[in-house]
Amino acid sequence: MENRPIDHCEPASSLASHSGNGKPAASTAKPPTHWRDGRDPKPPRSWTDPYASLPLSGPAWGDLLAAVSSQLRSLSGAPGQALVLRPSELTEGVWQCANALDRLERSLRHEMGRARRMELSLFDARVALARARMALKGAQDSERDARRRALEDSLTALPNQESFRGRLHLTMGRAAPTGDSLALLYLDLDDFKAVNDSHGHNVGDELLRIVAARLRSALRSGDCVGRLGGDEFACLLANVPGRHELDEVVKKFARVLSAPVRIGALDLRVRASIGIAVWPGDGDNGDDLLRNADHAMYQAKRQGGGHAYFDRTA
């Protein structure tokens, strides 16, 4: 849109022949019925508003105000000089300015309302974004909890059998290139069924939680323990130098487990039969190693408890 600047000395009658884009446009404004002094303004019959085509948008406001200011200066004339405009020209010029200012006021009110609606929309969008973030966090937390529950024993918070098997396979894969040895301990609590039968499953569950905590506390850095189910646990020991060092580790587990356990008014003692399988040698993969450690655990039970190594000839 081309806005032709208005010269300060340009007569009002000439301004009525153009608009903001150079084309005449009919005015929709209604003239007042009288001036403040009671005179009838009697606007000219051919009424045109040179500002009617200016768009109601922010960039045009400055142009509109500049045009009105220029028009008013041209109507009032220079200070100390007499007016050279005819009354009809002066009336028409004043009407043009009043009409333009009315349009500017409407435009400003429209923009203020639009800005308010935008603020409310922005507020609603921020609320929706906050809710979406909360929903996303809840979904992520639920997913983490689901993964944890899928890999964690709900009673003892130890890795469950699936998770322990995964760690076993992963550790064996890492140890294969370096030839590091691994030892798998398969533990079964002796006479645990009698505890459940005599004192109830609540006591039995508490005993399992205590055993799990003791096994976890006895682990070396890099070792792991998991619950395979029931009263059976497994410990994976990495970087075991030899049979003597492994015997010392197993004895430590036995001492930790055999300490007195107090649950309510009950004083209990725990013993475990421990089967040991060593890799490489006692299995080609994690499943074989776990199965052979289980066989060794039953061999220890047949011996009256304690621990036993896997023996292929047994």
Rank of each mutant, 00 (worst) to 15 (best):
R106N: 11
D63S: 04
S181Q: 06
S17F: 01
L129E: 15
I6D: 07
V127I: 14
A135D: 13
A259E: 15
K42L: 02
A125R: 12
H169T: 07
A308W: 02
D145G: 10
A272V: 12
T171W: 03
A52Q: 14
D288S: 13
V203S: 05
L187A: 02
P24Y: 00
H34V: 07
H307T: 02
N99Q: 09
L83Y: 03
D191M: 05
D288I: 04
S198Q: 15
M172C: 04
G113N: 01
R262L: 07
L85N: 10
G113S: 05
A16C: 06
E152S: 11
Y51M: 14
N3A: 10
R45N: 02
R255M: 11
G204P: 07
S88E: 15
L236H: 03
D141Y: 01
A98M: 09
A139R: 11
E92F: 01
G204Q: 04
A78T: 10
A60P: 03
M134V: 07
A139N: 09
P32Y: 00
K42D: 04
S17Y: 04
G242H: 15
V68T: 07
H295S: 14
S121G: 00
P5E: 10
H18K: 10
H199K: 08
G229R: 08
P11R: 07
D231K: 00
G22T: 12
A272T: 13
A183Q: 01
I276D: 09
N292F: 07
L187W: 03
R227H: 08
L101M: 14
